[in-house]
Amino acid sequence: MATVLLVRHGRTTANATGLLAGRTAGVHLDDVGRDQAARTADRIAAVPVAAVVSSPLDRCRETARAILERQAVAPTESIEDELTECDYGQWQGRRLQDLAAEALWSTVQSQPSAVTFPGGESMAGMQARAVAAIRRHDNAVEAEHGPGAVWAAVSHGDVIKSVLADALGMHLDMFQRIEVGPASVSIVSYGAGRPRVLATNTDAGDLSWLARSVPSGDAPVGGGAGDSAPDSPDA
């Protein structure tokens, strides 16, 4: 099975000022976001990635470019519209502080599966198209590069949270329990039986173990010895 790195874009001026950017054109990484993207790209550079797939929005493409530039061997790169930000409709471009006073806000927090943003899309629809896109690309990467392949998908906070919720077997109504920070890396390995969530919301740490690991389809009873365990009959 292949392994996907779910990378959120770095911080933007909209993030820093409390605006819900949504699909607004021309929202770029700010100085902090560019530094975050560079650090994340440096972490991922320890792993040869077979492909980098990005949301079409500028902030994700800029983050993806940082990852691509630090790979020793150029991965394939592509844009995937189904990984774009949620269509927040009439909420787009508004301050989060003001949106928190809307009646719909509490439903977004407690029952997102019931939410359709005014003039926009439903959160359930967002999850369905994002999960389908991730699984489709994952199958394609594994078919071309083998079960040990690693690839990166660069997307947005709510989109990645919804993909992680699906991989964890959680109902969408619990996805607000998951945190996905700017330029964070979450790791999922899809298998024939079930996905394995290897990490969530990481912003530091060595990822080189991914280059040495071919995940098994079975979970080790008792938790196993970890990826750094020595190869020996008694391990």
Rank of each mutant, 00 (worst) to 15 (best):
G148S: 14
L198V: 11
W209P: 00
A183L: 11
A2L: 08
G18T: 01
V115K: 03
V159P: 07
L29M: 04
K161N: 10
Q90N: 10
V131Y: 01
W151K: 05
G10H: 08
Q176P: 08
Q109R: 15
A64P: 04
A14P: 00
R95L: 15
D81S: 12
R23Y: 09
P182V: 08
C86E: 07
P112E: 03
S155Q: 04
W91R: 07
W151Q: 06
D58A: 15
L104R: 00
A14E: 05
D231S: 14
A225D: 15
A204Q: 10
S122F: 06
A124P: 01
D231I: 13
K161D: 05
P195Y: 02
S213V: 13
L207V: 00
D31T: 14
I160Y: 04
G10D: 08
I44W: 01
A165Y: 03
I44C: 03
T17A: 06
G222T: 04
D42W: 03
V180H: 12
Q109D: 11
G193Q: 10
M1R: 07
L29H: 07
Q71D: 12
W151I: 02
A103C: 00
A38M: 02
R70F: 07
L99Y: 06
L198E: 14
H28E: 13
L198T: 12
P147L: 05
R8Q: 09
G193K: 09
A16Y: 03
